[in-house]
Design a protein around this nucleic acid. Structure first.
Lengths: 221, 221
DNA sequence: GACCCTTTGTAACATGGGTTACTGCACAGC
DNA sequence: GCTGTGCAGTAACCCATGTTACAAAGGGTC
C-alpha cells in the first residue's frame, strides 16, 4: 500500500513535470502531487454536467476534453476543447463563486488528468506567482476561445463553421479521419442531421473530403 | 497646484470608497488613489478599440460602457455592458499576455472611471486578497455574460434577442425610453435596419412599445 | 438468406431573416 | 414657406437553413 502510494506519487510528479514543468516550480509540483488525484477516463466519459457542483479542478496530462453548452430545450453547442497543459476556467470561476457548473465536459479521447481540490486554489494563488500566471493564462485562453466560438456563430455561415469544426476535430484527434455520424456533428454545431449531410456531400463533391459510414476522411481542407 | 491635487485625491478616495469599499481594504484604496487617474468621458467616447494596446485598467465609478466585437468585414456585435463597480476582464487578460485588445469599448452614457496602470496588477494580486477576489469575480461575471450572449445568438430568434436588448438597454440607461435609431440597434445586434424596423413594428402592434423618431418607448415588455 | 437497426441520401417544402428599392415623413437650415 | 437629409415604413424578392418524409445502403444477428 505504502509502496503503491509511493509509486503513484512518483508517476504523478513525472507527469506533472512533463506537462507543467515550464509553468510551475518544483515546490508547487510537489504540493500538487501530494493533494491531487490521478485519473484516467475513457473517451465519452462525462466529467462534469450542467448544474453540478464542482468538486475539483482538472489539470490535463494527455488527451482532450470537449466543453459544451446546452439550452433549456436540450440543444447543444460545442464551445471549445481543453488539451494537455490546460485547465477549465469555468471550474476556476465556480470555485470562488461556489456556484454550479454552466457547462458540460466530456472526454473527447481517452484522457489522463489530475484533480486538485478547490480549497488549494486560493492558497496557491497567494503563494505561487507561477500558479497565478497559470490561472490568468488559462482565463485568457478560455475567454479568447469563447470569443472566437462566438465570432463563428455570429459571423460565419454554417458551411464554414463545419469546415472549421472538421479541421479542429482532426487536430485534436491527431489524424485525418473523423469517427462521427452526421447526427453527432449536427448536435455539436447545433444544427440538424439533414443539413449537415447536405453540406458534407457538397464538400465531398468539391473533393475536400471522402465520406464513409461512421467516418469522414479529410483530403484537402 | 498642490491644492488641486490634494482635492482630486480626496475625491477619488471618496469615489473609490463608495464604489469599491465593500471589496477593498483602505490600504488598497489608498494605493489605487495614488497611482490611478480619474477620468470623465462623455457618451459615445471610444475608450478602447480593436488592435490597440492596453495602457491601463478601468475601474468604473458611474455610468456604463458597452463592449463590442467586430469581424473582418466591420460587422459589429454587442457583447455586454460594464457598470459601476466593474472592470473589463479583457483588459486583465491583455495585461499579462501583453497582447492587443480583441474588443471595442464605448461609453454608453456619460461615465466616470479610474484608470490604473497595468504594472500594478501583478503587484496587487500578490499583495491583496481582496484584489485577487475582485479580479476573479470580474472574470467570473464576464465569462458568464459572454456565455449568455452566446446562448442568445445560438439559441434565440432575433425577435427575442431584440426584446432582451431593449430591456437591457433601458435598465442600463435607467429609463423606459431608448434613444437610438433602428440602424444603430441593427449594428449592435448584427442585423439590418429593415429587419429591425419590421420587428419593432410588430412589437408596437402588440402594444409592447411605442415608436417615435429617434426613440423607442417601452410600455409593457 | 431473411430480418432489423442505424446511418446516409435526397426531394419537397416552410420560414426567418437579409437585400433592394421606393415612399413618406420630420426636422434643420435657408 | 421651400428644400435637403436622415429616419422609418413597406413591399417584393432571394437564400440559407430547418423540417418532414421516405428510400437506399451497410452491417450485425439469427
Amino acid at each position: 500500500m505504502e509502496q503503491s502510494h509511493e509509486k503513484k506519487s512518483k508517476t504523478m510528479i513525472q507527469e506533472l513535470k512533463e506537462g507543467y514543468g515550464h509553468f510551475f516550480e518544483d515546490d508547487l509540483i510537489n504540493e500538487i502531487a501530494q493533494v491531487g488525484t490521478y485519473k484516467e477516463v475513457p473517451e465519452g466519459y462525462k466529467l462534469m454536467d450542467i448544474g453540478e457542483y464542482i468538486k475539483g479542478m482538472p489539470l490535463l496530462i494527455s488527451g482532450a476534453i470537449k466543453v459544451l453548452r446546452e439550452d433549456n430545450d436540450g440543444d447543444e453547442l460545442l464551445l471549445y476543447y481543453l488539451e494537455k497543459g490546460e485547465t477549465c476556467s469555468m471550474t476556476l470561476t465556480c470555485c470562488l463563486g461556489d456556484s454550479k457548473s454552466e457547462i458540460r465536459a466530456i472526454a473527447e479521447t481517452d484522457t489522463k488528468l489530475i484533480m486538485v481540490p478547490i480549497q488549494k486554489m486560493e492558497e496557491w494563488t497567494a503563494k505561487y506567482k507561477s500558479w497565478r500566471n497559470f490561472v490568468f493564462d488559462s482565463y485568457h485562453s478560455r475567454l479568447n476561445e469563447l470569443l472566437s466560438t462566438l465570432d463563428s456563430i455570429a459571423f460565419d455561415k454554417l458551411d464554414m463553421r463545419l469546415v472549421n469544426y472538421l479541421k479542429e476535430k482532426s487536430r485534436i484527434n491527431k489524424g485525418n479521419t473523423i469517427n462521427n455520424t452526421h447526427q453527432e456533428i449536427a448536435y455539436e454545431l447545433h444544427s440538424s442531421r439533414v443539413v449537415i449531410s447536405r453540406l458534407l456531400k457538397k464538400l465531398e463533391q468539391m473533393g475536400k473530403i471522402a465520406l464513409h459510414r461512421n467516418s469522414i476522411e479529410l483530403l484537402d481542407l
